[in-house]
Simulated scan of single mutants.
Amino acid sequence: MNAGTAYLCSAGGLFFATVIKLLALRKNPRDPLLRAVTATLFIGALLFVTAAPPNLAVINETLGIPNIAAPIVYSILTTFDGVTIVLLIHWRGNDDPRVTLRQTRLCLTTYAAVVVAIFVLFALGDAPVERLRDLDTYYSGTPWIREMILLYLAAHSVAAVTMVILSWRWARKVPGTLKLGLQLIAVGAACTFAYDLLKYTAIFARWFGHDWDWLSTNVAFSLAGFSAFLVAAGFLLPSIGQGVGSRFRALRRFRLLQPLWLEIRPEIPATSPPPMPWWQPVEHRLMQRERDIFDAVLRLTPWFERATGATVYALALAEHSESRRARSEADASVIARAVMQRRSAAPTVAPELRWTVSSTEDSDDLLSMSAAMLRSPRVELVRQSTARVEHRA
């Protein structure tokens, strides 16, 4: 793969990550952290677009100044470094907003000064021969251009080390996909620092009369795209993992509620919307299932018998001594009995003798009631006794 294609592939990956964040930004346009992540990914993509050797030639030709693309790319890279550090500062947060603001201003001011200095040094220097791949080593001994190259590399190295430290320290304090994302950013930043070391080595070799340019043009080049991929993946992973995790939890809850939903399904009015098909968002299907359960519980209230609930509660409590679980079993047995009695009789339970189903008030209790509906022997016993009574009647 040639240099231009590789850089453009890296740019494509970062643009793809930017699009993912833009889609999320449409749903939450006022989220400052989301805007910052989107801007950072876009600047990274812009960096690889401008740094591709064919595009360097286009920039030089368009502006009519040999090698003018170099300070432009260096300034975009420096901007990316500064914005990335600021993003990590805000992402982590601080108990004192004044500290965050002070750190942000210091970082942005420093890197803005570096951007200005890069263009000043380029203007002071003389780089008449266009170099698209090896400008760093070719002009490593040229006054002012040499200083410009060392300045951008130094700023890049400081940013890489800062990112490694911030990411790794924070990763030790957080779990899950956020931890993994921070570790990816730290590894990507470490690769970035290795990129700088290779550049330094090739430049120093030139100063001592050796030709180690391949370290800069080949090895360092390979690390650039890899490190960008890791950093982009690190920023994307927490939000993607959070979304996947949220959907997985919703799907798990949807499935665990199925026994309860099947039990009360005869009480869902025919005029209610039919169950959503499987391709609909699981969050919407879960909301519909929970709504069906709540509506059915309200419709069955006149058939809730306190004696049944109290008996099952006492038996369950005596067996496993867990009051919340016992309450869920009692609620499940009352609902199971009410469903069977409603099919054949008008409500006969006086208001003062009705059982109050409370397991629908807490999400965990609702799941426990659904599990009891499927597995509790006491709920099954209530079903059998109710069936025998109805059969004799």
Rank of each mutant, 00 (worst) to 15 (best):
T5H: 12
A189L: 04
K199R: 11
L25W: 10
H90T: 04
S376G: 00
T311R: 14
Y138W: 10
R337S: 15
A113G: 06
L353H: 12
T38H: 08
S358H: 09
S227F: 09
S246D: 10
D292H: 14
E352C: 03
T360Y: 10
R289W: 02
S227Y: 09
A190I: 11
E267I: 14
A155G: 09
R247D: 12
Y139F: 03
F119D: 04
S10F: 00
A372H: 06
A160H: 03
W170K: 15
Y200G: 00
L230S: 00
T18W: 14
A250K: 00
W303M: 07
K199E: 12
L25V: 02
R105I: 13
I118T: 12
G4C: 06
L153A: 08
L14K: 06
I68E: 10
V174Y: 01
L180T: 15
R206T: 14
A336M: 08
A326K: 05
P273L: 14
F294M: 08
E322T: 02
F48V: 09
A36W: 04
I240E: 11
A307Q: 15
R206H: 12
L215D: 03
L33N: 13
L178V: 13
M340P: 01
E61M: 01
P259E: 04
T50W: 11
R102G: 07
F208Q: 00
G4N: 15
A224S: 12
I165G: 10
T38D: 12
Q288C: 04
F235I: 07
S344C: 08
S328C: 14
P29M: 11
V114K: 07
T137L: 04
I68G: 14
A371I: 02
T79D: 03
P128I: 08
V219M: 05
V19Y: 07
S385V: 13
D292Q: 13
A310L: 06
A112M: 02
F221S: 01
W261Q: 07
D126H: 15
